[in-house]
Design a protein around this nucleic acid. Sequence first.
DNA 1: TTGAAAGCGCTAACAT
DNA 2: ATGTTAGCGCTTTCAA
Lengths: 333, 333
Amino acid sequence: MSEEPPRRRTIRDVAKAAGVSISTASNALNGIGRTNPETREKVRRIAEQIGFRPNALARSLLTKRSHSIGIITNDTYGRLTLPMTAGVSEALVDHGVSAFLCATNNDPRLAQLHLEALLDKQVDGIIFTATRADLTPPIDLTRLAIPVVYAFAIGPPTAPTFIPDDAQGARLAVQHLLDRGYRRILHITGLEDYLAAQLRAETYRDLAGAELDVLFGEWTEEWGHEAVRLVMERGGDLPEAIFCGSDEIARGVIDALRDRGLKVPEDVAVVGFDNWRVIATQTRPPLTTIDMELKELGRRAGLAMLDLTRGLPVEPGITRLPCSLVVRRSCGA
Amino acid sequence: MSEEPPRRRTIRDVAKAAGVSISTASNALNGIGRTNPETREKVRRIAEQIGFRPNALARSLLTKRSHSIGIITNDTYGRLTLPMTAGVSEALVDHGVSAFLCATNNDPRLAQLHLEALLDKQVDGIIFTATRADLTPPIDLTRLAIPVVYAFAIGPPTAPTFIPDDAQGARLAVQHLLDRGYRRILHITGLEDYLAAQLRAETYRDLAGAELDVLFGEWTEEWGHEAVRLVMERGGDLPEAIFCGSDEIARGVIDALRDRGLKVPEDVAVVGFDNWRVIATQTRPPLTTIDMELKELGRRAGLAMLDLTRGLPVEPGITRLPCSLVVRRSCGA
DNA sequence: TTGAAAGCGCTAACAT
DNA sequence: ATGTTAGCGCTTTCAA
């Protein structure tokens, strides 16, 4: 019983079967140079028949383009990274480009290891992605010979960077509330040192009235509960609506309101931020919220990468991509 | 201003700088064959100095090993895939192996496209991953010339397959309840046609008593609410504890119990399944639950892949990996 | 229009 | 112990 290794077909096999030279076969297959239409068809037909698929490694060695890129992420959870990665792939797969995914767990050693593996494999570029936009990468990506694109992470001014438009997202939320006649709007959000929290809060103040409260806290349900408690305790008029900095906070807020016998949206309307399905669809009532369109963000980053690897010009600097409003029952449905 | 392309150093550069032949340089660098310790050190030092990194593509072309694998997933959400992928990478990165991540969105066309790109790039193997163990891949992976490993998905009997041990996980949960003296235990779970639901339910019946109820429904919070309503309506003794088939269901159950003035765990203890952080840590009280150890599962799949690509024997068939119990306040903390 | 030949960067016989 | 040589599978001059 000898194991017969099912050797892959090479261009040599095609050439021989077609009775032409290797270079002619190559020309025919790639539609490059002058080739007799008949031989071209013949070569292609035979290639198809014997199931020839070019060895991308060999090709890359010569063309200096590996048709692969690396995605480096510090997200261990997946909620942000996977939709984005799916978007990146979506943009690339039709061009035969594949993406290595490297989870660094924010460990510099691991990140370095991954980076080296990527560079050795001659990736055409790297997309860096984080769970928080204003966070420094665990490794220095600024001196690479290949293009680097940042997605949901802020890079150097020279690098194309794609981030959700937090201000526009907040505007969408607040405007939605205003449009429905809500006036006394409260903003309960996460940690003040998050750039995203600041941007959303600023927009909120601009739109809803500068004198209004912003309650900074944690990005948790618990903080949502706590914040409602604080508001109730200090007395005075209840807010008509609450714009929450995240769906988790919104969930806490909604639960806390219900605990106190307040109805959403009849007594207080609530809007969240993230459209994290497992939360937003399961609050009672389901949550009206802002979607950051992560997949589209990934797609845009992928397209930028594609252009860069082709030497096309790509606008450097930050591009903020629009969020969308998802209306459910907690406000306006 | 001429752009000087910063050409990467090749082994040729190293050889020249060290005054040896290319093959000696290669030997020295790879520590293969007989090499004079001195020249070896010299070559290595020089390689280090000029920042030489071998071109993995060239090497792969020769050795037929690309040191890259493909992960094909139908998960668009990331909750399962990302931890698993991180585990896979963790197992592989120290061996210089990187993983292409392909999100198929369950679209056969997309899956096929990705598969072709992977094969063209000569991946050493493929790991298939799904959001549900008993689901058929959107493409045929059984006739490939490279090894295929299934993780959180069931493959053909000939392929190594890694799945969480649902029965053991359920046993962990139920035993935890029994150990604490709870006797009338109810099982509220998801769709009956999920293999995982069946296995968990079976174990539950074996341990907690065959006459006991299993309420099959959806994998949602809503079903948790609904199930509690059903139980209350039909009257009779309340269960002392509820083992839920998922954290989402558990969350619904806990909320429904609280709505009815029942305290968890004082009146009814609750245990979930998944350890999905965003849910389990945020229920009130936080949820005692079963963790499927997805990262470890990925690591095991990665290690199996590693062995396979080295021609080492790997046990085919299903390997069920142990779950762990995470104790929080909803039971036993 | 086609083919011969060189070579991408590296490894691995084989000779020395 | 080291160097020479022959490729891996492909693209790309350059000659025919």
